[in-house]
Protein backbone atom coordinates (compact mmCIF):
# COMPACT_ATOMS: atom_id res chain seq x y z
CA UNK A 1 0.00 0.00 0.00
CA UNK A 2 2.82 2.39 0.91
CA UNK A 3 4.22 2.10 -2.61
CA UNK A 4 0.96 3.54 -3.88
CA UNK A 5 1.03 6.60 -1.62
CA UNK A 6 1.28 9.76 -3.65
CA UNK A 7 -0.28 8.29 -6.78
CA UNK A 8 -3.28 10.11 -8.19
CA UNK A 9 -6.54 8.50 -7.10
CA UNK A 10 -9.03 11.21 -8.08
CA UNK A 11 -8.60 13.56 -11.01
CA UNK A 12 -11.26 15.94 -12.26
CA UNK A 13 -10.90 18.05 -15.37
CA UNK A 14 -13.01 21.15 -15.95
CA UNK A 15 -15.88 19.48 -14.10
CA UNK A 16 -19.22 21.26 -14.48
CA UNK A 17 -22.76 20.51 -13.40
CA UNK A 18 -25.77 22.60 -14.26
CA UNK A 19 -29.22 21.79 -12.90
CA UNK A 20 -32.43 23.21 -14.21
CA UNK A 21 -34.91 24.34 -11.60
CA UNK A 22 -38.21 25.16 -13.32
CA UNK A 23 -36.28 25.99 -16.47
CA UNK A 24 -33.85 28.26 -14.65
CA UNK A 25 -30.25 27.00 -14.84
CA UNK A 26 -28.46 26.45 -11.52
CA UNK A 27 -24.68 26.25 -11.91
CA UNK A 28 -23.77 23.93 -9.03
CA UNK A 29 -20.20 23.12 -10.10
CA UNK A 30 -18.40 25.46 -12.48
CA UNK A 31 -15.22 23.94 -13.80
CA UNK A 32 -13.39 22.12 -11.01
CA UNK A 33 -9.88 20.82 -11.68
CA UNK A 34 -8.86 18.66 -8.76
CA UNK A 35 -6.27 16.00 -8.04
CA UNK A 36 -6.34 13.84 -4.91
CA UNK A 37 -3.47 11.46 -4.30
CA UNK A 38 -3.58 8.14 -2.51
CA UNK A 39 -3.58 8.30 1.27
CA UNK A 40 -4.85 11.87 1.49
CA UNK A 41 -7.19 12.94 4.32
CA UNK A 42 -8.87 15.87 2.61
CA UNK A 43 -11.85 18.02 3.42
CA UNK A 44 -13.85 20.11 0.99
CA UNK A 45 -15.37 23.00 2.87
CA UNK A 46 -17.70 25.75 1.90
CA UNK A 47 -21.07 27.27 2.74
CA UNK A 48 -24.36 25.62 1.93
CA UNK A 49 -25.03 25.69 -1.81
CA UNK A 50 -21.35 25.97 -2.68
CA UNK A 51 -21.49 22.65 -4.58
CA UNK A 52 -19.74 20.32 -2.11
CA UNK A 53 -22.32 17.53 -2.29
CA UNK A 54 -22.70 17.86 -6.07
CA UNK A 55 -18.93 17.57 -6.45
CA UNK A 56 -18.87 14.38 -4.35
CA UNK A 57 -21.81 13.01 -6.37
CA UNK A 58 -19.93 13.66 -9.60
CA UNK A 59 -16.70 12.11 -8.31
CA UNK A 60 -18.52 8.98 -7.14
CA UNK A 61 -20.53 8.58 -10.33
CA UNK A 62 -23.81 9.05 -8.49
CA UNK A 63 -24.47 11.98 -10.80
CA UNK A 64 -23.29 12.69 -14.35
CA UNK A 65 -21.40 15.88 -15.19
CA UNK A 66 -22.77 18.39 -17.69
CA UNK A 67 -19.20 18.90 -18.87
CA UNK A 68 -15.73 17.70 -17.93
CA UNK A 69 -14.28 14.39 -16.85
CA UNK A 70 -13.66 12.40 -13.66
CA UNK A 71 -10.97 9.74 -13.32
CA UNK A 72 -11.00 7.54 -10.29
CA UNK A 73 -8.15 5.11 -9.91
CA UNK A 74 -7.23 5.96 -13.54
CA UNK A 75 -10.69 4.93 -14.76
CA UNK A 76 -12.93 7.43 -16.54
CA UNK A 77 -15.92 7.32 -14.19
CA UNK A 78 -17.84 10.13 -15.87
CA UNK A 79 -18.50 8.01 -18.95
CA UNK A 80 -19.44 4.79 -17.18
CA UNK A 81 -23.07 3.63 -17.12
CA UNK A 82 -25.26 0.82 -15.77
CA UNK A 83 -23.67 -2.27 -14.28
CA UNK A 84 -20.15 -1.07 -15.07
CA UNK A 85 -20.71 1.95 -12.85
CA UNK A 86 -22.39 -0.14 -10.12
CA UNK A 87 -19.51 -2.59 -10.08
CA UNK A 88 -16.95 0.21 -10.10
CA UNK A 89 -18.57 1.91 -7.11
CA UNK A 90 -18.83 -1.42 -5.29
CA UNK A 91 -15.12 -2.17 -5.74
CA UNK A 92 -13.57 1.29 -5.50
CA UNK A 93 -15.63 3.66 -3.38
CA UNK A 94 -16.73 3.57 0.24
CA UNK A 95 -19.55 5.91 1.20
CA UNK A 96 -20.26 7.56 4.53
CA UNK A 97 -23.50 9.51 4.59
CA UNK A 98 -24.68 12.28 6.87
CA UNK A 99 -27.79 10.24 7.85
CA UNK A 100 -25.75 7.00 8.21
CA UNK A 101 -28.08 5.23 5.75
CA UNK A 102 -27.65 1.78 7.20
CA UNK A 103 -30.16 -0.85 6.11
CA UNK A 104 -32.54 -1.00 9.08
CA UNK A 105 -33.58 -4.65 8.64
CA UNK A 106 -30.00 -5.93 8.58
CA UNK A 107 -27.82 -6.47 11.65
CA UNK A 108 -24.54 -4.62 12.15
CA UNK A 109 -22.65 -7.61 10.76
CA UNK A 110 -24.94 -7.90 7.73
CA UNK A 111 -24.71 -4.17 7.02
CA UNK A 112 -20.93 -4.27 7.15
CA UNK A 113 -20.59 -7.40 5.03
CA UNK A 114 -23.15 -6.26 2.41
CA UNK A 115 -20.60 -4.94 -0.10
CA UNK A 116 -18.38 -8.01 0.30
CA UNK A 117 -21.47 -10.10 -0.37
CA UNK A 118 -21.98 -8.25 -3.64
CA UNK A 119 -18.33 -8.86 -4.43
CA UNK A 120 -18.74 -12.58 -3.84
CA UNK A 121 -16.29 -12.81 -0.91
CA UNK A 122 -16.60 -16.25 0.77
CA UNK A 123 -18.55 -16.32 4.08
CA UNK A 124 -15.57 -17.19 6.34
CA UNK A 125 -13.49 -14.39 4.84
CA UNK A 126 -16.41 -11.97 5.18
CA UNK A 127 -16.93 -12.84 8.83
CA UNK A 128 -13.22 -12.51 9.57
CA UNK A 129 -13.01 -9.09 7.95
CA UNK A 130 -16.23 -7.87 9.61
CA UNK A 131 -14.87 -8.85 13.04
CA UNK A 132 -11.58 -7.11 12.35
CA UNK A 133 -13.11 -3.83 11.19
CA UNK A 134 -15.72 -3.82 13.98
CA UNK A 135 -12.92 -4.29 16.45
CA UNK A 136 -11.15 -1.28 14.95
CA UNK A 137 -14.26 0.88 15.24
CA UNK A 138 -15.01 -0.54 18.70
CA UNK A 139 -18.35 -2.21 17.95
CA UNK A 140 -17.68 -5.95 18.12
CA UNK A 141 -20.15 -6.41 20.95
CA UNK A 142 -22.89 -4.77 18.84
CA UNK A 143 -22.47 -7.22 15.95
CA UNK A 144 -25.97 -8.72 16.19
CA UNK A 145 -27.84 -5.49 16.77
CA UNK A 146 -29.87 -3.70 14.19
CA UNK A 147 -29.33 0.01 13.40
CA UNK A 148 -32.38 1.31 15.31
CA UNK A 149 -30.85 -0.23 18.46
CA UNK A 150 -27.69 1.89 18.13
CA UNK A 151 -26.92 5.53 18.95
CA UNK A 152 -26.13 8.01 16.15
CA UNK A 153 -22.39 7.80 16.85
CA UNK A 154 -22.48 4.01 16.83
CA UNK A 155 -24.44 3.96 13.57
CA UNK A 156 -21.90 6.25 11.95
CA UNK A 157 -19.09 3.95 13.14
CA UNK A 158 -20.90 1.05 11.49
CA UNK A 159 -21.14 3.19 8.34
CA UNK A 160 -17.39 3.78 8.51
CA UNK A 161 -16.81 0.06 8.94
CA UNK A 162 -19.11 -0.68 5.97
CA UNK A 163 -17.28 1.88 3.83
CA UNK A 164 -13.83 0.51 4.69
CA UNK A 165 -14.31 -3.25 4.99
CA UNK A 166 -14.13 -3.93 1.24
CA UNK A 167 -10.84 -1.96 1.06
CA UNK A 168 -11.93 0.58 -1.57
CA UNK A 169 -9.54 3.06 -3.17
CA UNK A 170 -11.32 6.01 -1.65
CA UNK A 171 -13.79 6.84 1.10
CA UNK A 172 -16.21 9.66 0.31
CA UNK A 173 -17.90 11.17 3.35
CA UNK A 174 -20.51 13.87 3.06
CA UNK A 175 -21.07 15.84 6.26
CA UNK A 176 -20.32 12.73 8.37
CA UNK A 177 -20.55 14.61 11.65
CA UNK A 178 -23.62 16.72 10.89
CA UNK A 179 -25.89 14.61 13.11
CA UNK A 180 -23.39 14.00 15.91
CA UNK A 181 -22.42 15.97 19.00
CA UNK A 182 -18.95 17.49 19.08
CA UNK A 183 -17.46 14.85 21.39
CA UNK A 184 -18.71 11.95 19.26
CA UNK A 185 -17.65 13.84 16.11
CA UNK A 186 -14.13 14.25 17.46
CA UNK A 187 -13.89 10.58 18.40
CA UNK A 188 -15.19 9.52 14.98
CA UNK A 189 -12.76 11.77 13.12
CA UNK A 190 -9.84 10.57 15.26
CA UNK A 191 -10.82 7.01 14.51
CA UNK A 192 -11.03 7.69 10.77
CA UNK A 193 -7.69 9.45 10.75
CA UNK A 194 -6.13 6.53 12.57
CA UNK A 195 -7.60 4.15 10.01
CA UNK A 196 -6.32 6.42 7.24
CA UNK A 197 -2.83 6.26 8.69
CA UNK A 198 -2.92 2.52 9.29
CA UNK A 199 -4.45 1.50 5.95
CA UNK A 200 -3.31 4.29 3.63
CA UNK A 201 -6.87 4.59 2.37
CA UNK A 202 -7.85 7.93 0.85
CA UNK A 203 -10.52 9.99 2.64
CA UNK A 204 -12.40 12.86 1.01
CA UNK A 205 -14.86 14.76 3.19
CA UNK A 206 -17.36 17.44 2.43
CA UNK A 207 -18.05 19.41 5.58
CA UNK A 208 -18.18 22.79 7.23
CA UNK A 209 -17.70 21.30 10.68
CA UNK A 210 -14.57 22.83 12.32
CA UNK A 211 -13.81 19.43 13.90
CA UNK A 212 -13.43 17.92 10.43
CA UNK A 213 -11.52 20.91 9.05
CA UNK A 214 -9.20 20.84 12.05
CA UNK A 215 -8.25 17.19 11.53
CA UNK A 216 -7.99 17.28 7.71
CA UNK A 217 -4.47 17.44 6.26
CA UNK A 218 -5.66 19.21 3.15
CA UNK A 219 -8.58 21.65 3.02
CA UNK A 220 -10.16 22.67 -0.27
CA UNK A 221 -12.55 25.59 -0.15
CA UNK A 222 -15.40 25.64 -2.64
CA UNK A 223 -17.19 28.90 -3.36
CA UNK A 224 -20.04 29.16 -5.85
CA UNK A 225 -19.07 25.88 -7.48
CA UNK A 226 -15.38 26.76 -7.91
CA UNK A 227 -12.26 26.00 -5.88
CA UNK A 228 -11.36 29.25 -4.18
CA UNK A 229 -8.65 27.88 -1.92
CA UNK A 230 -6.62 24.68 -1.65
CA UNK A 231 -4.46 24.43 1.46
CA UNK A 232 -2.20 21.57 2.56
CA UNK A 233 -1.41 21.62 6.27
CA UNK A 234 2.16 20.99 7.37
Amino acid sequence: MDEQIGKEVIVTENLKKTYHDNGIPVYAVRGVDLTITRGEFTAIMGPSGSGKTTLLNLISGLDTPTEGKVWLNSKLVSEMTGNELSDFRRDNIGFIFQAYNLIPVLTVEENVEYIMLLQGVPPEERHKRVLKILEEVGLVEMIDRKPPQLSGGQQQRVAVARAMVAKPAIILADEPTANLDSETSGELLDMMRKLNESTGMTFLFSSHDPIVIQRARRVITLTDGKISNDKIKR
Binding site: S60, L62, G82, N83, S86, D87, F88, R89, R90, D91, F95, F97, N101, I103, Y114, I115, L118, R162
Partner: peptide, 9 residues
Protein backbone atom coordinates in the same frame (compact mmCIF):
# COMPACT_ATOMS: atom_id res chain seq x y z
CA UNK B 1 -28.26 3.76 -0.85
CA UNK B 2 -28.14 0.18 -2.15
CA UNK B 3 -27.31 1.43 -5.64
CA UNK B 4 -24.68 3.82 -4.30
CA UNK B 5 -23.05 0.88 -2.51
CA UNK B 6 -22.80 -0.99 -5.80
CA UNK B 7 -26.00 -3.03 -5.97
CA UNK B 8 -26.91 -3.64 -9.60
CA UNK B 9 -30.37 -2.59 -10.85
Amino acid sequence: VLKALGTRP
